[in-house]
Design a protein around this nucleic acid. Structure first.
Lengths: 168, 168
DNA sequence: GCCAACTATTGCATTGTGTAACATTTAGTG
DNA sequence: CACTAAATGTTACACAATGCAATAGTTGGC
């Protein structure tokens, strides 16, 4: 009994524009994920993607207590406790008991941690700029418009009240 | 010494269109990743994203031996061995000693595994179609064009010779 | 003042990941 | 043909990320 072999599952029977969009976004995602990983590695080989994402959240949101940080990361507190353990060990995050409540802790970037975020971000931005530079001029504006439309249609807040670029 | 607090790191000083593109693609990625995760969960709560990705590779490429599968997944053989252990245990993958060489194994989807891929893919496509349906008509074509241009500028092969939609 | 709720941590389990060491099998070479 | 080298997959060990359950300490309400 031989199962039919499709060239690509998303291009199988019932092909709609959903497939083309999926492939397009997925390709772009692959590209950016790889690019981000390389940007991180170029600054510090030992920092993982989840760790960098945590640093970015602290960078954008400022000092946070653990439960709030966990919410932003969409993770559970135990996970975050352990990640923080490692990042404190690496000298990238500072953990202090809250001055207002002794059961809370306040997490913040160290200068070192802030520096990592800055350098990785700059690196990534440079790489992306290089790619955009190779795109046809006409496409550049269209790219942003189209994807913002997609994002809006998908239900993600058009503008995050607090600034929201912390995916990785 | 107070570190400056930027609203969004990618929008910090030196703001270029790279930032807008990054945010746009990252938002779209977030959207699709979440959507994919939900599509997988709706079919089988126990299947993880890396596992599903492996299933998709087997679905698109057909039976593979372990080292080749590992290459497609950009992973090392030991990782794949263990993932396969679990997927064989779950009845989604079939592992056979190769008929041509007794040191090779041939991995392939079981009917059950193929069914999972089909159902998750359909589900995901349906969800994406719903989102696209909410987009302004004019944007739909622009979306695909723009992202293909971005992907091409990023160096990813414009058309994968063997069909290449196995990101997750 | 005591009990309930909150906050973070620790214990335990699972998955994914990698490097190094290993066993088995195949291929090549003299 | 015999022996060695390469290929192939697995196992051993280590570590990051993740979650649930249990726990310790703290705070707040009544």
């Amino acid at each position: 009994m031989t199962r039919g072999r499709t060239v690509s599952p998303t291009r199988a029977a019932g092909n709609t524009s959903a497939d083309a969009v999926t492939d397009a976004v997925l390709s772009a995602s692959r590209l950016l994920v790889g690019l981000s990983a390389r940007s991180i590695a170029s600054v510090d080989e030992t920092i993982t993607m989840p760790q960098f994402r945590l640093l970015v959240v602290l960078s954008t949101r400022g000092p946070l207590k653990l439960t709030v940080l966990a919410e932003y990361l969409d993770a559970k507190p135990p996970s975050v406790t352990r990640m923080i353990d490692r990042l404190v060990g690496a000298g990238l995050v500072d953990r202090q008991t809250s001055p207002v409540s002794r059961r809370e802790v306040v997490l913040d970037l160290t200068d070192n941690g802030a520096s990592v975020v800055t350098r990785v971000t700059q690196r990534r931005r440079r790489e992306i700029a290089r790619i955009i530079g190779r795109m046809p001029e006409r496409q550049r504006a269209a790219l942003i418009d189209a994807f913002e439309a997609f994002r809006d249609a998908g239900g993600e807040p058009a503008v995050d009240p607090a600034g929201y670029a912390d995916w990785m």
